[in-house]
Design a protein around this nucleic acid. Structure first.
Lengths: 339, 339
DNA sequence: CGAAGCTATGTAAACGATTGCAGTGCCAGA
DNA sequence: TCTGGCACTGCAATCGTTTACATAGCTTCG
């Protein structure tokens, strides 16, 4: 089949050790040997067999990213960030989602234990209890970082956006426009992002002497469908808030779609603020005012952190890198009571 | 560190061969031995080292997917389909994008040659010439399938949607509504999908005795931005078509956004048809009439095809699996001249 | 009873690299 | 001339499995 290091050694009249050194530590062989070996290597397009190398070196040069749902386009930007950093360091990126990873009672860690990957970047803060426990095994925990989401109970380094600060920006913006009656369209109950963002809204409102309306929306997931469904609830409200802050852009877009279907206009009847700044936010009608989080950068940072961990850099188990967010003012917000 | 098969062998008083057999071919060992070994295995949480196994077995149990741009959310559904099928077969999915894969003149095939992966599913029909040539090497070509896009010159099995039929549906729909003056908002020049879809539009129009307007739009990429930019061109057209068929949903959404910004209404002033049926299509305002392609299924089929290839099933190099598409009529199309 | 066949296990050779250690040749300095 | 040091290179063990082949014991049957 394809040539091995032995073939190259034979063809260039040296030992396999020398071939190996030529490829991995060129400075340790003489120039003439190096040139001779490289000539043979190039001529035959030889590439080291990474399985053999990795077995010997005891590492995999690849990491696994776990997301709640691979089909969710939200994660693609994060993947891009991860991939960029990893590939620059010669590390491969495997992906899976929690569902398939846990299918059939399979361990989340099979990849780690089987030495298929050197580390894990987890984008799912909602892992079942059993999976969490596994991750905390001492020889495992040091090779895991969380990104975007995280475990409430902590225990792992993580990279996340400044969710609270984001919501403060959102509230300040709406209050500045004159809104007083602001609702929060929630994400899935118990989700760390939802918890954090909700707290951010509540705090910021309180700072203005305001409170959230008692009624709850959402509580399903971050999806477009959930947003649309929430619009139904909203419409049947007796006293409708003049503005809604959504836990995600997808929710916001779905919500706007639901409102539109029932004849309510954004922003004239309801001002809307999203969170994430997904690509479409700028292109929906009206363009969505939202809190921008830099998902690529988030991925890149998480990748960097994990690589350092793997390389052995001692990293406090609860190190948190918080990335700044910013307010993108677009067309979905305006002063209240324009009608 | 972690236990090896030798430890398990020692602890359960058998040879490594027996342990290996217990794990890989349980039917080949006696029940008593099997139970004894499994007890030790379970007790210590032993897992076979996949690097060693793969080295010995000469396969990687993983495949690489290459997309033009990992950050493009369009591909997430395809990943989900790929992953689902692969993981059910115990195969891992690595992802990368053409940019990083080709960075620094690196070979597209390094993964294949280095025995890191068993196969390649390529979602990029626009690979540079050098990369294409590499893929065609005899020992490589049999481990590659294309999905979604493909190489114009052929040479690889591929899975794709029925792009022509889709466009026929779109044209028929518009013509039925009464449109005669229909434009095509093109994707990137030379892209196989664009070529195919455009041909589909032209053919279908011809079948109705119609022709595309001479002027060209788009010719940039499939993105939201390109769609918005195209709206500018459209607006300055002397005789504006009453309907536009877009090469992708992203183009359509961007186009609608651009039209809206200039005061043109969809569908009242212009009817719009997209292609793909991305998730947001249903939620933009107005909801986008579009041609639905089942991206998850596309991924799943591609995965299945590749697995069969790897397993050695002889597959004609130009086998094409074409998936049906369907018309989703929503709010962005209506009879012309409503104004 | 002996040969043949079968089952269950062990022995040891791969798989394709990396790397500690030892050896070789050469040069400089005493 | 001898010795120590240096720059290269080779030998061989090792990483953790799988599996062809050999062996041993037990049935079965003529």
């Amino acid at each position: 089949m394809s040539l091995s290091i032995k073939d190259i050694a034979r063809l260039s009249g040296v030992s396999t050790a020398t071939v190996s050194r030529t490829l991995s530590h060129p400075e340790r062989v003489s120039e003439t040997t190096r040139e001779a070996v490289m000539a043979v290597v190039d001529q035959h397009g030889y590439r080291v067999n990474s399985m053999a190398r990795n077995l010997r070196r005891q590492r995999a040069d690849s990491v696994l990213a776990i997301v709640p749902d691979l089909g969710n386009p939200f994660f693609s930007a994060i993947f891009a960030g991860l991939q960029e950093t990893f590939s620059a360091q010669g590390t491969d990126l495997l992906v899976t989602d929690s569902r398939s990873a846990l299918r059939g009672g399979q361990s989340l860690l099979s990849h780690l234990r089987e030495a298929r990957v050197d580390g894990l970047v987890c984008l799912d803060g909602g892992l079942p209890q059993a999976a969490r426990a596994e991750l905390k095994a001492p020889d495992i925990a040091s090779r895991v970082v969380f990104a975007c989401e995280w475990l409430v109970e902590g225990g792992f380094p993580s990279v996340r956006s400044d969710n609270r600060a984001g919501m403060r920006l959102a509230v300040d913006h709406l209050v500045e426009l004159g809104h007083r009656d602001i609702a929060y369209l929630a994400g899935p109950e118990g989700n760390v992002l939802d918890t954090e963002r909700r707290a951010g809204v509540v705090d910021a409102m309180a700072a203005h002497g305001l409170a959230l309306p008692a009624v709850q929306f959402g509580r399903n997931d971050f999806s477009l469908e959930a947003g649309r469904a929430a619009a139904e609830d909203f419409i049947s409200l007796p006293a409708r808030p003049t503005a809604v802050i959504c836990a995600s852009d997808q929710l916001a877009v779905g919500f706007a779609s639901g409102l539109h279907a029932r004849g309510l206009r954004v922003p004239d009847d309801v001002s809307l603020v999203g969170f994430d700044d997904i690509q479409t936010a700028e292109f929906v009608i009206p363009p969505l005012t939202t809190i921008r989080q830099d998902r690529m950068r988030l991925g890149a940072q998480a990748a960097g952190l994990l690589l350092r961990q793997i390389a052995g850099a001692a990293c406090p188990a609860d190190k948190v890198i918080t990335l700044p967010v910013s307010l993108q003012i677009r067309g979905s917000t305006c002063p209240p009571g324009r009608d």
